[in-house]
C-alpha cells in the first residue's frame, strides 16, 4: 500500500488530454444532435397511421435497443464498407453506432412524452382547424418535450459516456489519448484516475441539474 502516486507524468501531457477532450466533445455534439433528431422522427413514426412506417420504426427501435452499442460500432467499422463502397473512418463508425443507438432510445422517450398528452388537447387543436403538423408543432411537442426533459438529459449523459467506446476503433478521444499516455509513461493508474475525474467533473453538474429539474417538474405536474 506504499505506492507513490505521481500525477506529474499525466499533467506533463496535458495537451494530449486536451486534444482528447476536443475529440470527445466533437463526437458527443454530433451524436447528440443526430440521435435526438432521428429519435424524434422515429418516435413520431411509431405513432403513424400508416402501417409500413409504424412497422419500420418499431423494427429500428427494437433492433438498436436489443444489441450492444459496441457491436454496432464494430459492425459499421468493419462490415459496412464491404456492403457499400464508402470509406468508413473511425469517426464515422462511432457516429453511426452511437447516434442510431441513442436515436432508438430517445424515440421511446419522445413517444412516451407524446402519448402522455391528454387526447383533449388533440381534439381541441383539431377543432380549431389546425393541420396535423401545426397541432404537433404548436400544441403537442412543446408540452411533451417539457415532460421528457429529464429523460432526454439522462440520455445525453449516456451519450457522453458512450463516446469512450470510439476508442475501440482508435478514434482520438479522451480515453484513446489516455491509453497512449499510459503506454508511453507506464502510469495507467494515474492516467485512468485523471480521466475518470475529468468525466466526473464534466458530467456531475449536469446530473445534479437533471435531479433539480426532475423535482421541479414533479412538483408542478
Amino acid at each position: 500500500m506504499s505506492y507513490h502516486w505521481n500525477f506529474a507524468s499525466v499533467f506533463d501531457n496535458w495537451w494530449a488530454l486536451a486534444i482528447g477532450v476536443v475529440g470527445t466533445l466533437k463526437l458527443f455534439v454530433v451524436c447528440l444532435v443526430i440521435g435526438m433528431s432521428v429519435g424524434l422522427i422515429v418516435g413520431l413514426g411509431r405513432r403513424s397511421s400508416r402501417r409500413p412506417v409504424r412497422w419500420l420504426s418499431t423494427a429500428f427501435v427494437e433492433f438498436f435497443r436489443n444489441t450492444p452499442v459496441l457491436v454496432q460500432i464494430l459492425w459499421f467499422y468493419y462490415a459496412l464498407p464491404i456492403l457499400v463502397p464508402i470509406e468508413v473512418s473511425p469517426f464515422l463508425a462511432a457516429i453511426l453506432g452511437i447516434s442510431l443507438n441513442s436515436a432508438a432510445y430517445s424515440a421511446e422517450i419522445f413517444r412516451g412524452g407524446i402519448q402522455s398528452i391528454e387526447p383533449g388537447q388533440w381534439e381541441a387543436a383539431r377543432a380549431l382547424g389546425m393541420t396535423w403538423l401545426q397541432c404537433m408543432r404548436r400544441i403537442i411537442l412543446p408540452q411533451s418535450i417539457r415532460r421528457v426533459i429529464p429523460s432526454l438529459t439522462n440520455r445525453g449523459v449516456e451519450i457522453f459516456k458512450m463516446s469512450t467506446l470510439a476508442s475501440v476503433v482508435a478514434y482520438v478521444e479522451l480515453l484513446q489519448q489516455g491509453k497512449l499516455i499510459a503506454s508511453l509513461n507506464f502510469n495507467p493508474l494515474e492516467v485512468y484516475t485523471v480521466i475518470a475525474a475529468i468525466f466526473l467533473i464534466i458530467l456531475y453538474p449536469i446530473v445534479r441539474v437533471t435531479y433539480a429539474v426532475e423535482r421541479r417538474l414533479a412538483r408542478s405536474d
Binding site: 449523459v157 458512450m162 480515453l175 499510459a182 493508474l189 468525466f199 458530467l203
Partner: peptide, 20 residues
C-alpha cells in the same frame, strides 16, 4: 460509478488497481 464511463472504470480496475 453512475457518472463515469464503464470502459474507463474497466481500464482503471484492469490496468490501475493491480498497481496499488
Amino acid at each position: 460509478f453512475r457518472t463515469t464511463p464503464p470502459l474507463v472504470q474497466l481500464f482503471w480496475f484492469y490496468f490501475g488497481l493491480p498497481i496499488i
